[in-house]
Amino acid sequence: MIAIILFGSLGVAMYATWAERKVAAVMQDRRGPNRAGPFGLLQPLADGLKLFMKEEIIPNNSTRFIFILGPSLAMLTATMTSAVVPWGPDIVLGSGSAISLQVADINIGILFIFGVLSLGVYGIMLGGWASNNKFSLLSAIRAASQAISYELPMGLALIALLMMSGSLSLHDIVGQQHGFWKDGWFTWYVFKQPLGFFIFLVCSFAELNRAPFDLPECENELNMGYHQEYSSMKLGFYLFAEYINMFVSSAVIVTLFFGGYNFPFMDVVAAKLGEGSVLMALICIGAFMTKIICFILFFMFVRWTIPRFRYDQLMNLGWKSLIPLALVNMLITGGVILWFFN
């Protein structure tokens, strides 16, 4: 199970690099990669092979151990988050035992994701510092302050959602969003927490270092950013970790706000196919993956549409707009729950 999820997220991330180039090409009226295989589908393999074959250079004045630790940490934290995401409903076997499509259903699932997220910045910071390059250092410091600043509104936005769910376990949160419509309102949390969703989305752009918040890799100020001195597969790890992060954070957004593996009329389908059958689980996983891919494409569209922010604009947005908004959202949610649902 762990291996399937690991290789699945690596595979999705691999093709996300291909999709990113294709999306960029379409949006700029180009063709994009089209030489390796049909539609250039073998391009990620060729890229990977190229990165592996490249000469590996470790700068003389770098701190060797930490220099190697940086990309490893980035990759480690990127792949760890997927452990708590529920990928599908339980499959009930004929003997009555159930197979869970979630690696670990811990009762603090969301906090686990936050913990791993807050550690993700170490990969960038240590790598940037160990390179012994001013640009890398500046970029690492930017990345760290950006990540810390945007973790706050992200957490505050989540608190409002947690007030409604009453549980930190992602398994429970997905269970509460069963189907699509119940008791005269949508079950998905995006319809109950639209402002919270918006804040969470903006913050995840910042946490992912994606455009329009890709200040740590802003070419015209910092050359290449924190991976300036990296070559070969270490550079590949940094770039790849970003795509894995994008996949995982899309999965988390879908799980929290877009019902996870639930889809409209799923009870009808489940009654036809039998509750807990393998086919039903596969359909659910399919629905989940479709939503995730929509979000990945959304991340890409935004990258090729909106220009980069300036650093002080980024800080102003985080501290002066998003945090007060998240606090207001929290107050409103608390008030509504207290007055109407208590």
Partner: peptide, 21 residues
């Protein structure tokens, strides 16, 4: 997990920050 988020994830990052600067 809160120990990790608060100390390892936030406070120590600030420490690193200052030392690097």
């Amino acid at each position: 997990i809160v120990n990790i988020i608060v100390y390892a994830g936030a406070i120590m990052v600030l420490f690193l920050f200052v030392i690097m600067l």
